[in-house]
Simulated assay, not measured.
Amino acid sequence: MRVDKYLWCIRYFKTRSIATKACKEGKVRVNDTLIKPSREIYPMDKITVRKNQINYELVVLDTPDNRIGAKLVDIYRKDTTPKEALQKLDLLKYSKDYYRKKGTGRPTKKDRRDIDDWYIDGTNTASEEEE
Protein backbone atom coordinates (compact mmCIF):
# COMPACT_ATOMS: atom_id res chain seq x y z
CA MET A 1 0.00 0.00 0.00
CA ARG A 2 1.18 3.54 -0.74
CA VAL A 3 2.36 5.49 2.31
CA ASP A 4 0.05 8.45 1.66
CA LYS A 5 -2.95 6.14 1.41
CA TYR A 6 -1.88 4.30 4.57
CA LEU A 7 -1.59 7.53 6.59
CA TRP A 8 -5.03 8.56 5.36
CA CYS A 9 -6.51 5.13 6.15
CA ILE A 10 -5.26 5.15 9.74
CA ARG A 11 -6.56 8.71 10.21
CA TYR A 12 -3.32 10.67 10.60
CA PHE A 13 -4.53 12.99 7.84
CA LYS A 14 -8.07 14.11 7.02
CA THR A 15 -7.69 13.74 3.26
CA ARG A 16 -5.37 11.78 1.04
CA SER A 17 -4.24 14.93 -0.76
CA ILE A 18 -3.07 16.41 2.56
CA ALA A 19 -1.12 13.20 3.22
CA THR A 20 0.43 13.42 -0.26
CA LYS A 21 1.40 17.04 0.32
CA ALA A 22 3.04 16.15 3.66
CA CYS A 23 5.10 13.46 1.94
CA LYS A 24 6.21 15.88 -0.79
CA GLU A 25 7.20 18.49 1.82
CA GLY A 26 9.47 16.00 3.60
CA LYS A 27 7.34 15.62 6.72
CA VAL A 28 7.08 11.84 6.39
CA ARG A 29 9.97 9.39 6.70
CA VAL A 30 10.03 5.62 6.41
CA ASN A 31 12.90 3.90 8.20
CA ASP A 32 14.59 7.34 8.59
CA THR A 33 14.55 7.99 4.83
CA LEU A 34 12.70 10.80 3.08
CA ILE A 35 10.17 9.32 0.72
CA LYS A 36 7.77 10.07 -2.09
CA PRO A 37 4.01 9.62 -1.58
CA SER A 38 4.02 6.58 -3.87
CA ARG A 39 6.47 4.63 -1.68
CA GLU A 40 5.10 1.20 -0.79
CA ILE A 41 5.01 0.27 2.88
CA TYR A 42 5.14 -3.15 4.46
CA PRO A 43 4.55 -4.54 7.95
CA MET A 44 7.26 -3.62 10.48
CA ASP A 45 8.22 -0.41 8.62
CA LYS A 46 8.87 2.52 10.95
CA ILE A 47 7.14 5.72 9.90
CA THR A 48 7.89 9.17 11.33
CA VAL A 49 5.29 11.88 10.67
CA ARG A 50 5.94 15.55 11.52
CA LYS A 51 2.57 17.11 12.32
CA ASN A 52 1.72 20.10 14.56
CA GLN A 53 5.37 20.51 15.64
CA ILE A 54 5.52 16.91 16.90
CA ASN A 55 7.29 13.89 15.43
CA TYR A 56 4.84 11.00 15.64
CA GLU A 57 6.54 7.62 15.39
CA LEU A 58 4.63 4.51 14.44
CA VAL A 59 5.27 0.95 13.36
CA VAL A 60 3.16 -0.62 10.61
CA LEU A 61 1.51 -3.82 11.85
CA ASP A 62 -0.78 -4.43 8.86
CA THR A 63 -2.31 -2.57 5.93
CA PRO A 64 -6.07 -1.91 5.90
CA ASP A 65 -8.14 -2.35 2.75
CA ASN A 66 -9.85 1.03 3.15
CA ARG A 67 -10.20 3.91 5.63
CA ILE A 68 -11.06 2.51 9.03
CA GLY A 69 -12.87 3.71 12.12
CA ALA A 70 -10.96 5.41 14.91
CA LYS A 71 -11.44 2.48 17.29
CA LEU A 72 -9.76 0.07 14.87
CA VAL A 73 -6.60 2.11 14.24
CA ASP A 74 -4.52 0.23 16.83
CA ILE A 75 -4.94 -3.02 14.89
CA TYR A 76 -2.94 -1.58 11.99
CA ARG A 77 -0.27 0.50 13.72
CA LYS A 78 1.72 0.65 16.94
CA ASP A 79 2.34 4.17 18.27
CA THR A 80 5.92 4.54 19.58
CA THR A 81 5.88 8.32 19.99
CA PRO A 82 7.96 9.36 23.03
CA LYS A 83 5.95 10.74 25.96
CA GLU A 84 8.13 13.88 26.00
CA ALA A 85 6.83 14.80 22.55
CA LEU A 86 3.22 14.48 23.66
CA GLN A 87 3.94 16.57 26.78
CA LYS A 88 5.40 19.21 24.47
CA LEU A 89 2.04 19.29 22.67
CA ASP A 90 0.27 20.00 25.98
CA LEU A 91 2.69 22.85 26.72
CA LEU A 92 2.05 24.33 23.28
CA LYS A 93 -1.70 24.28 23.95
CA TYR A 94 -1.29 26.09 27.26
CA SER A 95 1.09 28.69 25.84
CA LYS A 96 -1.34 29.54 23.02
CA ASP A 97 -4.32 29.88 25.38
CA TYR A 98 -2.75 32.52 27.59
CA TYR A 99 -0.86 34.50 24.98
CA ARG A 100 -2.29 37.70 23.54
CA LYS A 101 -0.23 40.35 21.80
CA LYS A 102 -0.12 43.65 23.63
CA GLY A 103 -2.55 46.18 22.22
CA THR A 104 -4.73 43.69 20.34
CA GLY A 105 -8.36 43.21 21.22
CA ARG A 106 -10.21 44.29 24.31
CA PRO A 107 -8.48 44.18 27.67
CA THR A 108 -9.24 41.14 29.77
CA LYS A 109 -10.74 41.45 33.23
CA LYS A 110 -7.26 41.12 34.75
CA ASP A 111 -5.88 43.77 32.39
CA ARG A 112 -8.73 46.12 33.37
CA ARG A 113 -8.00 45.64 37.09
CA ASP A 114 -4.31 46.31 36.52
CA ILE A 115 -5.16 49.50 34.59
CA ASP A 116 -7.57 50.63 37.33
CA ASP A 117 -4.99 49.93 40.04
CA TRP A 118 -2.39 51.88 38.13
CA TYR A 119 -4.69 54.91 37.73
CA ILE A 120 -5.80 54.79 41.37
CA ASP A 121 -2.21 54.54 42.59
CA GLY A 122 -1.15 57.37 40.28
CA THR A 123 -3.97 59.70 41.42
CA ASN A 124 -3.53 58.87 45.10
CA THR A 125 0.14 59.80 45.10
CA ALA A 126 -0.57 63.05 43.24
CA SER A 127 -3.40 64.04 45.64
CA GLU A 128 -1.32 63.18 48.72
CA GLU A 129 1.55 65.39 47.52
CA GLU A 130 -0.80 68.37 47.16
CA GLU A 131 -2.07 68.04 50.75
Rank of each mutant, 00 (worst) to 15 (best):
R2K: 07
D4G: 06
K5E: 01
K5N: 06
L7Y: 03
I10F: 03
R11M: 00
Y12G: 05
Y12N: 06
K14W: 07
S17C: 06
A19Q: 01
T20C: 03
K21H: 08
A22N: 06
C23R: 04
E25R: 07
E25H: 13
E25K: 07
G26L: 02
K27P: 00
K27W: 11
V28W: 02
V28K: 06
R29N: 03
V30D: 00
D32E: 06
D32W: 10
L34A: 02
L34Q: 06
L34H: 10
L34K: 05
I35E: 00
I35Q: 02
K36V: 04
K36I: 08
S38M: 04
S38E: 04
R39T: 04
R39K: 09
R39N: 01
E40Y: 10
E40N: 13
E40S: 10
I41F: 02
I41S: 01
Y42G: 14
Y42T: 10
P43Y: 04
P43N: 05
D45E: 06
K46V: 13
K46G: 06
T48E: 00
V49L: 05
R50I: 11
R50C: 10
R50L: 05
K51P: 10
K51A: 04
N55C: 07
N55Q: 14
E57D: 08
E57I: 14
V59E: 08
V60M: 02
D62R: 04
D62Y: 01
T63F: 02
P64V: 05
P64T: 01
P64K: 10
D65V: 10
D65Y: 15
N66Q: 15
R67N: 02
R67E: 02
G69W: 04
A70D: 02
A70Q: 15
K71L: 09
K71W: 01
L72W: 05
V73D: 01
V73T: 11
D74G: 14
D74R: 14
Y76S: 00
Y76K: 15
R77A: 15
K78R: 09
D79A: 09
T80I: 10
T81L: 07
P82S: 00
K83H: 10
E84M: 12
E84V: 15
E84S: 14
E84L: 11
L86A: 12
L86N: 08
K88G: 12
K88E: 03
L89A: 12
L89P: 11
D90Y: 15
L91K: 09
L91S: 12
L92R: 13
K93T: 09
K93G: 12
K93H: 14
Y94S: 14
Y94R: 14
S95R: 15
S95Y: 09
K96H: 14
D97E: 15
Y98Q: 07
Y98T: 11
Y99H: 07
K101M: 13
K102T: 07
K102L: 13
G103E: 04
T104V: 08
T104R: 07
T104A: 10
G105T: 07
R106W: 07
R106N: 11
T108A: 05
T108H: 05
K109E: 13
K109C: 08
K109S: 13
K110P: 05
K110D: 14
R112I: 00
R112A: 07
R113A: 09
D116K: 00
D117C: 05
W118D: 14
Y119G: 08
G122L: 11
G122I: 12
T123G: 14
N124C: 11
T125R: 04
